[in-house]
Design a protein around this nucleic acid. Sequence first.
RNA 1: GCCCGGGUGGUGGAAUUGGCAUACACGCAAGACUUAAAAUCUUGUGGCCGCGAGGCUGUGAGGGUUCGAGUCCCUCUCCGGGCACCA
Length: 806
Amino acid sequence: MDYPFKKIERKWQSVWQKNNFSIWRAKDFGPKKKIYILDMFPYPSGEGLHVGHTEGETGSDILSRYSRMNDYNVLHPMGWDAFGLPAENYAIKMKKNPMTFISKNIATFKKQQRSIGLSFDWSREINTTDPNYYKWTQLIFLKLFEKGLAYKAEAPINFCPSCKTGLANEEVVEGKCERCGAETTIKNLNQWHLKITAYAERLLNDLDKLNWPENIKELQRNWIGRSEGYEIDFPIEFSDKKIRVFTTRADTIYGATFLVLAPEHNFCLKLAKDDYYFLVERYLKKTARQDKTETTGVFTGSHAIHPLTGDRLPIWISDYVLGGYGSAAIMAVPAHDKRDYVFAKKFSLPIKQVIQIPNEKGLPFENYGQLLNSEEFTDLSSKEAANQIGNYLKKIGLGKMTIKYRLRDWIFSRQRYWGEPIPLVNCPRCGIVPLKEKDLPLKLPKLKTYAPTGTGESPLKNAEAWVKTRCPRCHRPARRETDTMPNWAGSCWYYIRYIDPKNKKSLADKKKLKTWLPVDVYVGGVEHAVLHLLYARFWHKFLYDLKIVATDEPFQKLVNQGIVLGPDNQKMSKSKGNVVNPDSIVKKYGADSLRLFLMFMGPFEAIKSWDEKNINGVHRFLIRLHRFGQRLKARSDKTETKIAARKKTEALERLNWTTVKVSHDIETFNFNTAISASMEFLNYLEDNKIYSKKIFLDLVKLLFPFAPHLSQEIWSNLGKKTILDKEKWPKTKTKSAGPRKITLIVQFNGKKKTSLVVDADKEFDEIKNMVLAEPKVRTNLKNAVLIKTVYVKNAVVNFVVKPKTE
RNA sequence: GCCCGGGUGGUGGAAUUGGCAUACACGCAAGACUUAAAAUCUUGUGGCCGCGAGGCUGUGAGGGUUCGAGUCCCUCUCCGGGCACCA
């Protein structure tokens, strides 16, 4: 028989809702230990909550409810990352302000979150598009500007022709716009940048301190891409100028047979000799860096002088050398670099081997062999040679050690409407002038049309009345900056605002910040590894330098929920029509079943595919749990005393074990095994007819974080008046009272033959006779010669034998 | 090409870190209840051999270390993810 989940869930949700959910409100100051459990706040899209959100939010909810019962002061807030393109596109289509769309969606999201029983502290709700919120986002930008970390520069940047805006490096995935999937192009635009590269070293080093999944740390390390190497100057023949190259392989310098400049290099045209000028000019014009497979290049006609050998090295131009990395010029060592090799082959340039490659097959080019053909450095190891050659170059003034990063500065302006306006003014007299703090927030104006201009400029350009202003410094007529911030800006510091969401004087009160930061557990998807998570760390470190926050990292522990694929094993998306809406599951099976199902599908961090038929398993479990509660209620208290003492001791021991297991598994996000341990325990109670209210109520407590509605219902059905959130988690004992029994495994040659129950912590001599008396042991020993006996206390005895030979 | 993960029944997945492989659940099969079906309950369920007790075999492949390997080491292979003319 099914249980009345609809009635039960409605009932307890309305109890929790009293006083605006005050039971889940975090106390800023108090004697309890704090824990800050944070979800990556969602973008309130028109599609509503999907099972991906639900999975992560259920996981953090379980930990939050568990923590409350373990006497923690829990901060578990929720809010809305509401700037961004979908709302803007909707606004363009409907000719309405994006806010109307956002408000409606937020209402839907909240209703859904309540319907699955998520225990957020709603008194701290925030919304990045609220001027009372983005006032502070703008203030942080002004601080960055003040410290010289925000600058405007014309640079070739990624541009999305469909979204009609510039993008950050991080927003381009495989040459496509991260948001809309259109192919991006490179455009020269005058854009605001944030100098994230100034923090590269710290962003890299501090990863070591964090309790994050190793793969995410590795993604950030690769993205930052630190390389140690040398800058080496190659004098140009018949000139006093030098070409500076960057290499991580100074040891291969004797193998350099030509130089290659990126087409963006300043010297390209200057170096082009008469006969070659036309060719070079043509090459520079047509190169578009589209085709990465074809090797192209052009000779300048000039030569450089090798700083050690004095050889003449031809200087070439090719787009396989990048303009934006290193010094946009390389020394080509075709014998030991694959790309240089391909280029040398194509244009018949010399190849000179300078490192021993011991084995043709399997060894990488970077293999640290010994040097060949390298004058006094010959026979040194590659590593040693790099040092010595580096030192020598330094001595003669042609080289120095240096560190380069792959990380680029963050392109921070967007030519769109629905973002925080950049609070700056262009004054014909004073130049770029920041607004005063008292003039924040600089609110977005209402427009007639929100469509991008198509000229590469923001729609705000059209709001003439808003654009026209006066310079904050000289008070003469001036014009506002019309670019807006990217949608990542608001999410860079929202976890700070939750701590003090209504503060009118500062981002948040210092004392409160000190109480709550850092975030102890941050739950979200892996897709933000080099976007939000990198940007937020950058801003946090900046705020740390301003002494606004007291920790140098925002998120101590990070947990990624694995994505939930659709039933077809494809990523859920509207266009594929495989999106599963949690509402339909709640309707059919109830919120508790949905929660349990999501957590039982597999490890929290693993990729899972949605297979609805498995929901029967957890739903049946809840039915049985409910029924067991009903049965207990129907019995008189006298029945309980009838359970045999031995049976009861065993049950208590199993309960203890289950409690330890479930607690551990919640703390480590192994929810699937916590649930199976609970299932096993209920199976055990049923099979052995252990109708003990006391024991069962402890199981109900263990299940409360997972299935709060039904657990609370059973709790109250069995005569308890309290709210489970305020109850204490069952206590565990580390040692059991009586003599502990263990199951000893008996192996022959490492293979299990039998097992027997013995007292724990015994030496082999004490139990030897018992073991030898086992029939299986006797027969096995009879037919063999015993060579050795291995005994591991409390675990195993292994008889090493060989067959009797006749 | 480089860097991370991962490969266990028909399926999702367990295995306290070197000590009972396949817990828990799905599915399937048989049975009970039912006029019937659904729901529910009971039993069985890695493969091979055997009526049976039982035996053999088994965690992508091959080798190694060990009394003992899903777990550690080496070689290979396949799958997933990330980065990529980054010098």
